[in-house]
Design a binder for these strands. Structure first.
Lengths: 132, 132
DNA sequence: CTTGACATTGACATCAATGTCAAACTCTAG
DNA sequence: CTAGAGTTTGACATTGATGTCAATGTCAAG
């Protein structure tokens, strides 16, 4: 598929897909005419990247995370101590973010239930299967 | 205390404290000479704001979240339907972020354990009591 | 062949969050 | 009194993620 369809399916602007590619988060095959061509898997990849960006993960870290996911199921060679330390550092950063977001989530849920608008809560749960 | 100490204790730049105030996330008493003066509670508040910003929550939302936390323990009047809908929307956004971060966290943990650098994992756990 | 929808690259604009610098003021220590 | 550290406001720069626009190329439909 071409960039337009990919972007629509992943819920982002085509502009962003090119930006992600420029940041090394994505590689695109090129059709003979120069158009980028993508597979179904790329839809998943792009929407995951967008989610991570929204969650405050910088693109440089996203790159290594995605690379890790691909190679982690196989071997485990890439760890010259200093890299591992860096990862451990990022880990605590991510855990802090999760803690902040969890607390905010609970606050919102609290207010929403307390205000007897419980219908909206289930509506939210329907659109987002994650988060519990 | 003055802005310098507050910033040091909260782990941010004094510049940011002023910025947060400008965004309405903070109110500061003024000493007769014009200096901002803060209480111990403000340290907590500032570090929480910083955490939420790092987690990708925009300052405008942070403002309503903090306001909610203060008033939610008391009554629950403030919900003209449309506001509740907006909150429900933000809720799914936050849940998405949590899902993304959780997955990334697991990936890093996976690699760290798989690479037998388990020592760094416990080191990370020590510095961050949250995240489980 | 022409029109319209979509693609390309590249430059420029914007927005939020921060950094940085300047000029002036306050306070404490010497 | 003076030097130095910290504070004030305000302006300007920067960075990362996006939006937007321009000039051009591709392609399918009429």
């Amino acid at each position: 598929m071409k960039i337009g369809e990919l972007a629509r399916r992943a819920g982002v602007a085509p502009r962003l897909v090119r930006y992600y590619e420029q940041q090394g988060l994505l590689v695109a095959d090129r059709a003979p005419n120069g158009y980028r061509t993508y597979s179904d898997d790329d839809v998943e990849r792009v929407s995951r990247v967008a989610g991570m960006v929204r969650a405050g993960i910088p693109t440089r870290l996203i790159k290594v995370l995605l690379d890790m996911e691909e190679t982690s199921t196989a071997e485990a060679p890439t760890c010259p101590r200093t890299v591992a330390e860096m990862l451990a550092g990022e880990l605590v950063g991510i855990e802090d973010k999760i803690a902040c977001l969890t607390r905010s989530r609970d606050t919102i849920r609290d207010v929403l239930t307390r205000t007897e608008q419980a219908a909206l809560l289930s509506e939210a749960a329907a659109t987002s299967p994650a988060g519990r």
